[in-house]
Design a binder for these strands. Structure first.
Lengths: 338, 338
DNA sequence: GGAGTGGGTCCGCTTGCTTAT
DNA sequence: GATAAGCAAGCGGACCCACTC
């Protein structure tokens, strides 16, 4: 490793001169010759400022951590892309981390923030996480921003317009002519799941459609949850002709289960899912989805942590733009005439 | 932030006493009372050793970077899981990073290793990457290990037994009674793609089956590549009755294209893919796959970097155990009688 | 007196050496 | 001569404050 003093020795100048030249400090008075020589030697020796030394000096790492429960999830990777792009613009580096359960989150926060490895953290919790559990790790002053979770005693959340996303999906099915529409939702503990359910229910109510409680489930977002939910809904006395599914992964499971049970989509059952991701294009039939602005969510999350880092106050924010976008594929169609 | 001197002041002892007690240095002679007091104060003040200071002192971060081209890819997340588990066992932390193209990889390596942010790097390159391009960033002594790519002038690669994986998939289709079997492969530049093709070809040859060149493609591993490849193969004069597809994502695209063209799988066309991932269970029909030991690959990669870090010599290694595992789902079946 | 330099301190932590019982 | 503790240097970099023409 090359250090400033290596360069200083080689160039025959003092360490402070090298430091000033290479960090381009303002008001630096160094002759052109010396400056050029320092630059040349630095280049020859392939100098790179030592990260630890800078971090120690500045008490600042210019690193942001982004913790997600599951990297496999294509939605999260949109989020991560947004985080990375915005972080780069603000000269931050992103450290990605995985924390599947609360315990891991707690430990990760302690290590990352407590040991000064990062300046701020963006946390996407599992949908199943009880917000109250976050209290334990919520020094309200910590530069932590939660994504898609509003934290009771911690201002600083960035969430999607779940209500509108669900409404968009629901309206699409209504526009196709469906009247018996069901909702396959996430676990009731999650705020985002509640908001989506409300978006569905409000839209149905606004056009005077009745929702049979048998058509509504709250089992979760995994494919297996979607399979179970579909079974439950389709065993109802009167079957729905269409379903809003609150998550694309659950929708994939539901499609598979529909196949297994011999229900053809979209002829006998239309499906519209919230969230888009590449696997949605590759299911059979390809899924109609409502694409939520995860990329922008990631960007806003970064702005929010940075604000917290510099001013240590946070705000809660709903990312409403771009609006949830309906992507019509082949899993939704008008209902068969009765 | 709490520092050692905060604790020292509070406990009325010297900084060095605190350091020795908290780091549990051997041969430390500190009275029980002092020791207890230091521990209590440290706990009260919620002390955590500063990462930057330690890194600066030790010239060592205990962090390993893992660079992948695409986090969405479910296969990589198996790899990452393996990396994390093994890293944890060796008291390393993992920093995940994304680098889609060579330029980014180069920059990432410079930042991570050059600035001393990490002690070693595990790189999973894109399948499309030309190994020769890696030369540029290959100080052969750098603590870098490549996964699934053998690097010409850089011993230190960990790869899968691609030949055997392809052979397993091929043999499965042969066992079902297929004779006209095609191969949808990855880009020819990638060594792993070549090894899989050889595994396919060798297995076919070993049972005396002929491979029509029209049944073999090398378009890549994305779903769109699989769609194009399926079209090309099924336009052949004599059509195959089964396909080995070198990657599960390409297989998803191929399944979709088969649907679109009205070829029913597995009745008219059997499909077996290399690699397993959760979306493979949720396609229609669910995909028959050969699960490759990505988790173990990740673990071996960690052992390999650690060896490089401490001894700075590397070895090339094939992870052959557990063996590629055939997972029979519904996309493969005996051929229709002619 | 301003242009061009170098010296020295500190960031938090570890550790060999010293000092005081 | 043990035992218990403190001093101080130094990891690499930044920057304030000299100092010299």
């Amino acid at each position: 490793m090359t250090t400033l003093s290596d360069i200083a020795r080689e160039a025959g100048v003092s360490v402070s001169a090298v430091s000033r030249v290479l960090s381009n400090a303002e008001g630096t008075r160094v002759s052109e010759g010396t400056r050029a020589r320092i630059h040349r030697v630095a280049k020859d020796l392939n100098y790179r400022p030592n990260f630890a030394a800078r971090a120690l000096k500045f008490q600042r790492t210019a690193v942001l951590a982004c913790i997600v429960p599951d990297l496999t999830n294509a939605m999260f990777s949109e989020l991560v892309r947004g985080v990375e792009s915005c972080a780069r613009e603000h000269d931050y580096t992103v450290l990605l981390s995985r924390a599947e359960v609360m315990l891991e989150l707690d430990a990760a926060l302690a290590r990352l923030l407590g040991e000064g490895r990062v300046d701020g953290v963006i946390v996407q919790t599992l949908d199943a996480t009880d917000p109250a559990a976050l209290d334990a790790l919520s020094d309200a002053k910590m530069p932590v921003v939660f994504v898609n979770t509003v934290h009771p005693h911690h201002a600083g959340s960035v969430i999607l317009d779940d209500h509108r996303g669900a409404a968009t999906a629901t309206q699409h099915l209504i526009d196709l002519g469906h009247q018996r529409i069901g909702f396959i939702g996430g676990l009731a503990a999650a705020g985002s799941a509640r908001r989506r359910l409300e978006g569905f229910a409000d839209t149905m109510a606004s056009v005077g459609l009745i929702v049979d409680p048998e058509w509504v489930t709250a089992m979760g977002y995994r494919p297996a949850d979607g399979m179970a939910a579909l079974g439950s809904v389709m065993d109802a006395g009167v079957r729905p002709t269409a379903l809003v599914i609150a998550n694309v992964n659950a929708a994939m499971g539901a499609l598979l289960e529909a196949r297994r049970r011999g229900w053809s989509v979209p002829q006998q059952l239309s499906v519209a899912a919230i969230h888009d991701s590449w696997p949605a294009e590759n299911t059979w039939p390809p899924l109609t989805t409502v694409k939520m602005p995860f990329y922008e969510l990631g960007r806003e999350a970064v702005k929010s942590v940075i604000a917290r880092i510099s001013q240590d106050d946070g705000i809660d924010l709903v990312v409403g733009s771009p609006a949830p976008e309906l992507i019509v594929r082949e899993s939704s169609a008008p209902p068969l005439a009765d």
